[in-house]
Design a protein around this nucleic acid. Structure first.
Lengths: 198, 198
DNA sequence: TCCATTCTTGACTGGTTCGTCCATAACGCT
DNA sequence: AGCGTTATGGACGAACCAGTCAAGAATGGA
């Protein structure tokens, strides 16, 4: 009946993500996004409503994909739970170190810039953080069942600690810490996790 | 000889800090700062040069005061080194929880928004982080001398871990974590630090 | 008192940016 | 093919904002 869209919505969101990610919300112009996607501004506004709504879509998307990725990394059987945990911690350190542009994580960057004044962003960030914590807790509980981590410690508290370390690695990376420092932190964090008494 | 300034430079910097802190760099207008300080824009530009330079002054100031404050909290004799360390960790958790506006730390917020594209900010942030790490390392080494922390672990690595946890607490606080979660993290982090074998 | 010098104020400028609008294009249905 | 509907793209409007400027004010010295 009507003229169909020429662009793929998801692809536009991905491109917009790149723009917001490297420039931040305020410093990114709608025209930057229009140019990067090859769309006219009319199409952009027609499809997404406006800058704020577009950012909300991008942010929501990003949070979801982060949680998904971590979920894929951490889910599995008890026997490999500890291996998955340590692989994940090292992977975050390596990814942060590899991010030479120091863009950090859009979740952190967006929350830092907007959470205070934008309830939608704040809520989404909170939900993502809670999901990450739950994933870590699940894996740590599996470690405990498998005898890799002391069973007498609250897995929720350990998960919160690990999450803080991961977020801290990210923050330090953005501030320019070296790859060595970051992997050291990852190593030390894993080393101090309480082992079961044999 | 000449007309003297009517305002106190440090006071203007403090007011500007508040503005940049809650709004971020891009979203804060020079006129906001002019209104908040009661100054005309001409005076502002005359005294500080421009928005970017003003921010650099504010940021530099802030980093310095943070390092100073931590330095005061952590310096002292070996006997109380562990007490100072744990007090500091709890203080960060409490301060983060008390920051209901979730503004976080200007160091983190400014770095997140600008470090990627502003070498001056990046450098200053890096220097501040390194100073914090050195302060922690000094205190941890004192703990080791006093027998409160296992002496066979590199104090630099433990300091890096603690710093990551502190930065992580901050990041989680900004994302909306509860006070309970934050103090739990502080408690758990202190609990997992390796004790000397008795 | 008068002057040189620096500070103050707020109106103004030039450029930038969000969002709108409209003429036109592309599609499927009848 | 004709039509209704929705997408497109770029020109346009209005608001906003960093930075400038000129006229006047406050000071200490001559």
């Amino acid at each position: 009946m009507a003229r169909p869209r020429k662009f793929d919505e998801q692809q536009v969101l991905d491109t917009a993500r790149e723009q917001f990610w490297s420039g931040g919300y305020a410093a990114t112009r709608m025209e930057d996004i229009a140019e990067a996607t090859g769309l006219g501004k009319g199409s952009l506004y027609g499809a997404f409503g406006g800058k704020q709504e577009l950012f909300h879509r991008v942010f929501d998307d990003y949070c979801g994909s982060v949680v998904d990725a971590v979920s894929r990394q951490l889910r599995g059987d008890d026997a490999n739970a500890y291996a998955r945990l340590s692989a994940h911690v090292y992977a975050v350190a390596a990814a942060t170190a590899a991010d030479t542009a120091h863009r950090g994580c859009l979740l952190a960057k967006g929350a830092a810039e907007l959470a205070e004044h934008d309830e939608t962003v704040a809520k989404r960030a909170r939900a993502a953080i809670e999901a990450l914590q739950a994933l870590l807790e699940g894996d740590i509980a599996a470690c405990q069942r498998n005898g890799d981590i002391a069973a007498d410690v609250d897995p929720g508290k350990l998960a919160a600690l690990v999450l803080a370390v991961l977020r801290g690695i990210e923050a330090l990376g953005k501030a320019g810490a070296s790859e060595e420092t970051l992997t050291d932190i990852a190593w030390t964090a894993l080393a101090v996790l309480p082992r079961p008494a044999r």
